[in-house]
Design a protein around this nucleic acid. Structure first.
Lengths: 248, 248
DNA sequence: TGGGAGGGTTGATCTGGGTCAATGCGCCGA
DNA sequence: TCGGCGCATTGACCCAGATCAACCCTCCCA
């Protein structure tokens, strides 16, 4: 039970299938027990807003199940997604008052939260928590900057391929997938959400997905289930030299 | 002397004209002395590369004077700037082996560096350093995400206005400038570098700057010196509701 | 059992910004 | 004093992706 609830805290720093571990608490120590005291769960329905940008946010936590998005909106309604939260991802800004972005549940969502004040106090007394959070934040910064390249310089086709690659990689048991393997996964986002992520319109997203399908780079079962017969070919389309940016 | 060399470490956490302080070492304590032992300076000429992406980077540090840029490059040569380093900004990734981006001196540059290993050791023994770095990294993450909105959703005109606003705000004694004030500053970037930052071509940058000038939103003395007669009007053009994103 | 809402696709047309190319303007070194 | 080089501007043209609009599918509920 502990293990599952604290998926983001309960793993040692070694090799771990869960990408974001907020705190390496060296499982089973009394730190975990202290966390137990200040934790609680929150559930959201698809479409519900977790916090609005600027709102006071008095917790930190992690996604247990479901998907949430971080978005920014201009007053005229243009929106840009700036992050995607998948299970085990951390949310929250220790030391900050308000939320910086709208956090919206894209599917039904369960979060495991910790009250911020006591969590911050724990940070003071347990130095490796701050160090762990620093590592995680550096990961997110890398992902955000990787995304800046996507947004600023890639074509629509490359953007779509990049997004599929990221979701596919992350979904399909991240580690050690051989690049030529056949990969199947579900898109956790509507075409519109994908467009908001990629700085495109939903029509362009739809057209480009159709094009990739027509050319055999991907196959579709229904609207959401995607099969990638040759992952390395997809990476080429993404213009990705690196092994692909992690996405927050 | 200490004060100046350690501009990024030597200020208390209170109100401070220097935006990025890596460490609040509560001036004059022995922590500063320990930093003194592991510090050294490096100078670079305009155009020189500080580190290449992927290279081993065995130091952290801060910019003393001059400007540097963080850029990512695709194999076909397309480049995207992902950060701008101005005096007092921190560079480096404690706990990471390699550099994640190319760091290039845009002007003559002096950096105050600390050897990474001992710096990391200090982090372990001095908890508030990690906490300070976490705050800084959160700032950079905010800036990066703000920039994602600029790259993904703003028009060329808005992008230029956003960049001018950010540089102007930061240059012209950041704090408490009344928004209607007349502001003068120098662009630290060529048109091409601006284009790389904004995800545009240099021709578009040039045209949009000319347009803003034609319409009286800005005045130019030479190519680089910019006068903004009414800052709030510039912010409007930037489509900026917020008080404007900080730029890393 | 039917209609309507939410998501998705596709077509026709328009346009912002990219591309290519010529020209201008200091500044520096011979 | 004259190139020449690096940076910037401007013009002409083009195209990727936005916009506007029609239509499809499927699930749900009256």
């Amino acid at each position: 039970m502990l293990q599952e609830d604290f998926s983001f805290v309960s793993h040692d720093c070694g090799d771990c299938p869960i990408r974001h571990r907020a705190v390496c608490a060296r499982c089973e120590t009394d730190e975990l027990e202290r966390l137990e005291e200040i934790k609680y769960y929150r559930s959201f329905e698809a479409g519900q807003t977790v916090v609005w940008s600027g709102d006071r946010m008095d917790f930190v936590g992690s996604v247990v199940s479901g998907i949430a998005t971080l978005t920014q909106t201009m007053e005229d309604g243009r929106t840009q997604m700036v992050g995607l939260l998948l299970p085990s991802d951390f949310v929250g800004r220790p030391g900050r008052e308000g939320a910086a972005y709208d956090v919206v549940a894209t599917s039904d969502l369960v979060m495991c939260c910790f009250r911020k004040k006591p969590f911050e106090q724990m940070m003071e007394t347990t130095p490796h928590i701050a160090q762990r959070l620093l590592q995680m934040t550096l990961d997110e910064l890398d992902a955000a900057r990787e995304w800046m390249l996507v947004l600023g310089r890639k074509t629509a086709r490359e953007k779509i391929a990049s997004l599929l690659a990221i979701i596919g990689r992350r979904d399909a048991s991240i580690k050690s997938l051989s690049m030529q393997e056949r990969i199947v996964f579900d898109l956790p986002l509507t075409r519109e959400a994908m467009a908001d992520y990629l700085g495109l319109t939903l029509e362009t997203v739809s057209r480009q997905i159709s094009a990739l399908k027509r050319e055999g780079l991907i196959e579709l079962q229904g609207k959401r289930r995607v099969t990638v017969p040759d992952f390395s070919r997809l990476l080429e389309e993404a213009g990705d030299d690196s092994d692909g940016g992690l996405l927050v």
